[in-house]
Simulated scan of single mutants.
Amino acid sequence: MINAMTDSRTGQEAPDPADDEPPAPALSGPAGDEPPRTSALPEPAPLSRRMLVGEVLVVLALSLGASAISATISFIGAITARVSLSRQTASLITSRADGRPWLDLAWQLYSLAFALVPVVLVVYLLYRSRESHRTMGFDARRPAFDALSGAGLAAAIGAGGLLVYLVSYQLGLTVQVKPSALPENWWTLPVLVLQAAKNGVLEEVIVVGYLLVRLRQLGWSPAAAIALSSVLRAFYHLYQGVGMFFGNLVMGVVFGWFYHRYGRVMPLVVAHTVIDVVAFVGSIYLIGRVDWLPGG
């Protein structure tokens, strides 16, 4: 409704007396205070070269870089022992609570879950820099390509790796590798499959996908980045002996080239998972039952 009155003498609208009233004083006290004005948060600064280098070093120190140092110390201990490498054993997956299967299972699941935290970290860091897991091809957009190419890589690398292991063991350059030392339980096979998947995700996402993305952003050439990735992979397998060091070096070169060619880490995750499933599960049924496999 229009709030106006008509002057009877002029026939014109007279102003509303209320319009001449002074404005109400502003309320004082807590109830009348205006909400405080918050300043906008500053935009994150772009990643500098120094920040990228620091980020990579922190990620590696929390994951496979630390494993490389641990494996090197373990190897030094092995080659300075009084027995030859071929008489020593490296067990990859062991019981965490002998004779207590439920507690052992809890420990196995705990180790699986927290071993993947570095993967969560690198995905988070990629999002922080306005990238994502898709930047390194860690997604399910091409399932057929990932499965088929991963299976092919698994067959080639797996067969070659087994040959390197057998020859280097006969030459005394590699320890006896016992993939699984878990006792027989209803959960043994599922845990071994999960361990294999964990290895595939952890190693390929960090040492290939993430590392090669960051090294490219730092201006490294593809050849230099693949070389560093491969050497890192070889060193964190050094505890298995000299033969497996070079076997994993070759694996790193092949996987690094594949990633550079296709820009997807998922086929490498598939390949690594398949290789480890065959090794972990196969060791249960083959070691001690065939003459050509060490450890019987």
Rank of each mutant, 00 (worst) to 15 (best):
P25F: 10
V205T: 11
T72K: 04
R100Y: 12
L215V: 00
R142M: 08
R82I: 04
W187Q: 03
H237I: 05
L268D: 00
G263C: 03
R49G: 07
Y262P: 01
T273A: 10
P36D: 10
T188G: 06
F75K: 10
A40T: 11
I73R: 15
A78F: 13
M136P: 00
L64W: 12
L153I: 04
Y127T: 09
G77H: 10
G172T: 03
R96A: 14
T38H: 13
L211Y: 03
V120S: 10
P190V: 07
Y110N: 10
P36L: 14
T273E: 02
L163V: 13
M1P: 10
S149W: 02
Q12L: 15
L218T: 01
G11V: 08
T6E: 13
I2D: 11
L121Q: 04
G295V: 07
I76T: 12
S180H: 04
G247A: 03
A71W: 04
W292A: 09
F258T: 00
G65R: 05
W186Y: 08
R9K: 14
R82M: 10
V58D: 01
I79A: 04
G209M: 00
A68L: 05
R82Q: 14
K198L: 09
L126G: 02
L286T: 10
L47Y: 11
F246V: 06
T273F: 11
V270Q: 04
A71R: 07
V270D: 01
Y124F: 15
P15D: 11
W102I: 12
G160D: 02
I79P: 07
N185F: 09
T80G: 06
Y169P: 00
V213C: 03
A144G: 06
A224V: 05
L27M: 13
D7E: 10
D19M: 12
A197M: 13
A40D: 12
L171F: 12
